[in-house]
Computed example of a mutant assay.
Amino acid sequence: MAQIEALLAEDPEDAFLRYGLAMEHASAGDDAECVNVLRDLIARAAASPYVPAYLQCGQALVRLDRTEEAAEVLRTGVEVAGRARDFHAQGEMQGLLSSIE
């Protein structure tokens, strides 16, 4: 995690690094920090969305039992994935969304 944070200090806009940091937090069992990092990534990458961030954020929110927030993130993610023509991610997010609504 420290390595990724050091690289992000050099290039704070690197979406792949930020996503990797979020996944490290999830692997460590810190879903709350995973969500914080992913929400930051989503906000930073608004002009060029990083589609996997929406799915992972939704999943982490579900694990935290924050289903209303998860549904909101996933709905947005479904739209973003559709615009990006990432139909696989769109289907995964729609499936998760359907399971929590």
Rank of each mutant, 00 (worst) to 15 (best):
A2P: 01
A2N: 14
Q3K: 14
I4H: 02
A6W: 04
A6L: 12
L7S: 11
L8E: 03
L8Q: 04
L8K: 02
L8P: 02
P12D: 12
D14Q: 09
L17H: 02
R18S: 12
R18A: 13
L21D: 05
L21F: 04
M23V: 10
H25V: 00
H25M: 12
H25P: 00
A26K: 13
S27H: 00
A28E: 14
G29N: 09
D30S: 11
D30E: 10
D30F: 02
D31I: 00
D31E: 15
A32N: 06
V35R: 09
V35L: 10
L38M: 07
L38A: 09
L41D: 07
L41E: 09
L41Q: 10
I42C: 03
A43Y: 08
R44V: 05
A46H: 03
A46Y: 04
S48Y: 07
Y50S: 08
Y50C: 07
Y50L: 06
Y50Q: 06
Y50D: 04
Y50H: 14
V51C: 08
A53D: 01
A53I: 01
Q56L: 08
Q56A: 15
C57E: 05
C57V: 01
C57Q: 05
G58A: 08
Q59G: 03
Q59C: 04
Q59R: 12
A60M: 01
L61T: 03
L61I: 01
V62L: 03
V62G: 08
V62H: 08
D65M: 10
T67D: 14
E68Q: 13
E69R: 13
A71H: 09
A71V: 10
A71M: 10
A71G: 13
E72H: 11
E72M: 11
E72D: 13
V73P: 08
V73K: 10
L74Q: 04
L74G: 04
R75Y: 00
R75W: 00
R75H: 05
G77I: 10
V78S: 03
V80A: 07
V80D: 01
G82N: 07
G82L: 05
G82S: 11
R83H: 09
R83N: 10
R85I: 03
R85K: 15
F87P: 04
H88T: 10
Q90N: 07
Q90V: 03
Q90Y: 02
G91W: 00
E92T: 00
Q94L: 12
Q94F: 01
Q94E: 13
G95W: 04
G95A: 15
L96E: 06
L97E: 06
S98T: 13
S98M: 13
S99Y: 08
S99G: 11
S99A: 15
I100E: 05
I100Y: 10
I100L: 10
I100H: 05
E101I: 12
